[in-house]
Design a protein around this nucleic acid. Structure first.
Lengths: 134, 134
DNA sequence: CCTCTTTTTTAGAATCATTCTAATATAATA
DNA sequence: TATTATATTAGAATGATTCTAAAAAAGAGG
């Protein structure tokens, strides 16, 4: 991903375009591995763990990145270029991306039920491989 | 909730009906507060915190209870008598129950996308009160 | 209602992902 | 290029959750 594009993505959202932020954003955009902060830090050794956490928080707040709670006690992160949701294998904790459904009816129902403006969502489904089922 | 009913709910799911489990299950069924383990422990002072955690894990595994990740860094728990989902106020962290929508199309789409048997789900929506919006 | 065996409970210690601190460095702007 | 606000960093601190190992209770079968 070219530098200038990363810079624009950050600045458009009111974030200073530091080299660490560009590197982390580029990393997330080019990896479909749903990494944890620790995994990002391990791969990008020149960036401190604190900065990885700080940057992820900013990227999540800006909407560029989402958190996935995979129930293995660590937060996973995913670049959110296209709206999608996650299906988590309960045995292996593998995280699968899916995007073939329309969330709008759900958002409308939520708005009606709560009176809140819906600003985001997490949809996570848990599944077991049929060949693992007892 | 009568003792015998709580006992049956646990035993039907292969869990020994200890007094601690019955008390915690009864607590969750009668409170709509989405408590944390610490809150439950504070209210039920005779039950150790370790047992509260152990019991919640069993109840979640059995499907009687669900975990809510409200992004305040503590897990909240909710008795899952009727399928429903949660809307979380991003400012106050208040958790609102909602049940007025049909998740089946979503589960079918997830099964098709992943090839997994869908065994559970978390649907959490985040919203802001219109009067808090800038 | 007595074993017996397995599972559960418990207090306290341990873990470890995440957050905080406060000193240094860098980005944005004029 | 100076200024000022914001970001980065290493290391310490936090705190929710998990672990440990010993004592207690549940459930099954006589």
């Amino acid at each position: 991903m070219p530098d200038q594009k990363l810079r624009n993505m950050l600045q458009k959202r009111g974030l200073k375009a530091t080299s660490q932020r560009m590197i982390i954003l580029d990393y997330l955009m080019s990896h479909k591995t749903h990494p944890t902060a620790e995994m990002i830090h391990a791969d990008l050794q020149t960036i401190s763990l604190a900065t990885v956490y700080n940057t992820l928080e900013k990227l999540v707040d800006s909407g560029l990145v989402v958190v996935i709670d995979s129930h293995d006690d660590k937060r996973h992160f995913d670049y959110y270029g296209e709206p999608h949701y996650h299906i988590i294998n309960q045995k292996t904790h593998e995280i699968i991306d899916a995007n073939n459904f329309d969330v709008q009816p759900l958002l409308d129902a939520a708005r009606k039920a709560s009176g809140l403006n819906i600003s985001g969502y997490h949809i996570e489904l848990y599944g077991v491989d049929p060949k693992d089922a007892k």
